[in-house]
Design a protein around this nucleic acid. Sequence first.
DNA 1: AGATCGGCCTGGACGC
DNA 2: TGCGTCCAGGCCGATC
Length: 279
Amino acid sequence: MPELPEVESVRRQLAPRLVGRSVLDVTYESQDRFEGLERVGGTRVLDVRRRGKYLLAHLSGAPTGTVDRELVMHLGMTGSFRFRGEPAPVGGTAWTPDAYVRATFTLDDGVLDFRDVRRFGRLTVVPAGHYDGIATLAALGPEPLSDDFDAEVFARALARSRAPVKTLLLNQRLVAGVGNIYADEALWRARINPRARRVGPARAQRLWRALREVLTEAIEREGTTFRDYRMVNGESGRNADFLVAYGQEGKPCPRCGDPLRKITLGGRGTTYCPRCQRR
DNA sequence: AGATCGGCCTGGACGC
DNA sequence: TGCGTCCAGGCCGATC
């Protein structure tokens, strides 16, 4: 479930290990989700950025050195990056490649594996800035923790749509990087029913703020680990113990004590407090 | 055009 | 023990 905080935590460990490195070779399963990945060979990594749940790396084109292409990475549900031969994390075991390694990069100073049990992840190389083949990235909304995320624009977009508010949070167009976990957490914090189809200005303002708080706190704890999510060094995030809504069905609401309830909304499991989050 | 829904993919939990 | 069924869910494409 890598969402914005998990992807950002991966980025922070990946960037210092990758920027400036040359990619000598890459091997991968021949599948659509690795389309064009061979074009990463012979390039140098210039940066590792993040947009929503996507990791983006500018590559210098060999042999001219111009920036002409970009590696686009999405972790899907279970994707992770691990370097071979690095020391084991505290309380963990060293990384050994297994049957779930889907792509391997040979760098000038080491080997990087992309592991992805459920194959929802995606690694592609595109001409720099050309995202038209990646619809979600091309239409991605503002970064919630940047000044581009404007509370009034957000409120107007919520007022305009008739879809359930949680569905809007998940579609990546109003705001980038929010997934099921942080949607449930932010809606609980803002006291908004996930099924609400009309969200007024006051609630929109609360939700805008709740999103920023929830995501900021999760980044500080390096993300939420249930099972698969790991950082590049193999460690788990520490946010799971702080969740108050997602996955907490049946437990008393920390605000009012009533039991939290789980429903299905837009095909997604959704947990909320029927009392605090009235429609 | 926006809303909605099923499929992709796999391992693990659960019931019998 | 073993088998079948369901669930997790980000994204994508089809359909309404």
